[in-house]
């Protein structure tokens, strides 16, 4: 009997989900490839399988829907172990924010909140390797990592401080895969960001302090000229999962 009831519930749920079709797809396919993380030996290239990625970062509006259904992730209710006191700082209350940021990417969210949001969508946070692979793309090619013009453009954004209200998603550029704003808008959480192991001392990292980190791998960095990827690595090294940062949001993958 229980099973029948369950199946009936499922049908309702399905109906609801499948009815909400939108004209434009919100995830796109990213081909698999290899990604060489910073600070690793050549042999440690990561093979990335194909995956689907959200074309936009999650917006304040999107996140509001999530909070309405999951009130324990509201600004006043979230547990301090899952988010620090800057959680959703830019919102006025648990369920409201200024209209002008409706389509801006949601920021001041912790890794725990981001992860939960993606799970509730049946998705997940991207692995760093997946994110970086998708991020290699410029408007016109899948791998623009050697393209000094593109690197310079990314670097220019990276050197600017954040505006108080971030521009809407979709306002920077659409890359080769059809994903928007991989650069130029905000930093994004990755599932395994905590594999960025550096101490704050970025200069002696070729032989890392062995008592702080058990360092079986070696740490000579590749591609010293791709400064923007250094900066993402530095950012990932400096944050903890509960941090809520004004220029750090996320998108989901599957």
């Amino acid at each position: 009997m229980k099973v029948v009831l369950l199946l009936l519930n499922l049908l309702n749920v399905f109906a609801g989900i499948c009815q909400s079709k939108s004209a434009t797809p919100v995830m796109v396919h990213i081909n698999g490839g290899s990604y060489l993380p910073l600070y690793s030996k050549n042999v440690q290239k990561t093979e990335v399988k194909s995956f689907y990625m959200d074309i936009y970062a999650v917006t304040n509006s999107d996140f509001l829907v999530f909070v309405k259904v999951n009130p324990e992730w509201g600004k006043s209710k979230v547990k301090s172990i899952f988010a620090d006191s800057n959680y959703l700082k830019q919102w006025n209350s648990d369920l409201s924010f200024n209209k002008n940021m409706a389509n801006s990417p949601v920021v001041n969210v912790s890794w725990f909140a981001a992860k939960k949001y993606c799970e509730c969508q049946g998705k997940r946070l991207p692995e760093t390797a997946e994110w970086e692979l998708a991020a290699k793309a410029s408007e016109i090619k899948a791998d623009a990592s050697k393209d000094s013009g593109f690197n310079q453009w990314v670097l220019n954004w990276v050197t600017k401080p954040n505006p108080v209200v971030l521009p809407s998603v979709g306002s920077t550029f659409k890359n080769f895969y059809g994903v928007y704003d991989m650069h130029g808008l905000l930093w994004e959480w990755t599932y395994d960001f905590n594999n960025a192991l550096t101490t704050g001392e970025s200069r002696g990292n070729s032989s890392l302090d062995n008592t702080f980190f058990c360092g079986g791998g070696s740490f000579a960095s590749k591609d010293l000229n791709n400064y923007a990827s250094f900066m993402r690595f530095a950012l990932r090294s400096s944050i903890n999962a509960k941090y809520c940062i004004a220029n750090l949001g996320f998108r989901c993958v599957k």
Partner: peptide, 14 residues
């Protein structure tokens, strides 16, 4: 260590 660099690696807003 690091002249303090190790101990002062600070994320934005921290």
């Amino acid at each position: 260590p690091g002249g303090g660099a190790v101990s002062t690696f600070t994320a934005p807003g921290h």
